[in-house]
Nucleic acid binder design. Structure first.
Length: 205
DNA sequence: TGTACTTCGCCGCTATCATG
DNA sequence: CATGATAGCGGCGAAGTACA
């Protein structure tokens, strides 16, 4: 309300809108009670991305807009957990879980269904031959997606490569337990899972 | 400049097929 | 059998057109 620049990002590459989404993805109570009001204030009108040298404007009314923001918002928390527990990435189920707590005024019921979410993921997968493919996601195995490593975002007046913006090093470094942060005690096996994931992503950059 | 009508691009959505 | 992937129909609204 006082004219703060909502486009600025924190030290791990998330803007205010994405921080709100991060909180909502962790805390169902926040999602149902607080999200709607803050969403309206912080949601940008669009975001500008670049894939394969093509400029893409993602309008806020597109599901792709929300999905990309959610993927960024869930990067350190849910993606971290998924990687650590079983070497997976994002699947449609992650979105179904998180969106189920969002009020209908923010996300209409039809957009919370698995089939619809899966459709958006598949339609925007880099290798998909589709006229309106925005190349936002990359499938690493059946049903498992990450943000397209070739993607660049226009953030704070410059182009930032997505995995330069988001820190792979800090992935799963902190997970939340209720309201508080704690550092995961990562044993050797989990450390290997993380390393494998990091090198897999780096190889695609 | 207004308005009524047509065309067309852009997806939303789901039926259906595929996969593990 | 549950979940993921895909095709493509149909709706909507913006843009175009025609005429007053």
């Amino acid at each position: 309300d006082m004219g703060a620049n909502t486009g600025l990002i924190n030290n791990v590459g998330l803007n205010a809108f994405q921080i709100a989404l991060e909180q909502a993805s962790i805390d169902p109570k926040y999602a149902t009670k607080k999200l709607a009001a803050i969403y309206e204030i912080l949601e940008p009108d669009y975001m500008t991305v670049q894939a394969e040298g093509r400029l893409i404007k993602l309008d806020k009314r597109l599901m792709e807009f929300l999905m990309l923001n959610l993927m960024m918002a869930m990067f350190y928390t849910r993606l971290g957990e998924n990687v650590v527990r079983g070497g997976n990435a994002f699947s449609s189920g992650d979105f179904v879980d998180v969106l189920s707590h969002f009020p209908d005024t923010v996300v209409p019921e039809r957009r919370k269904k698995r089939a619809y979410i899966s459709n958006i993921l598949s339609k925007n997968e880099v290798t998909r031959d589709d006229k309106y493919n925005r190349k936002l996601f990359r499938r690493i195995k059946h049903g498992q997606y990450i943000i397209n490593p070739q993607l660049s975002l226009w953030v704070e007046d410059e182009w930032r490569s997505i995995y330069d913006l988001l820190s792979l090093d800090l992935l799963a470094y902190r997970l939340r337990d209720g309201q508080s942060y704690f550092y995961v005690n990562i044993d050797e096996h989990l450390q290997k899972q993380l390393e494998h994931f990091r090198s897999q992503v780096m190889a695609l950059c």
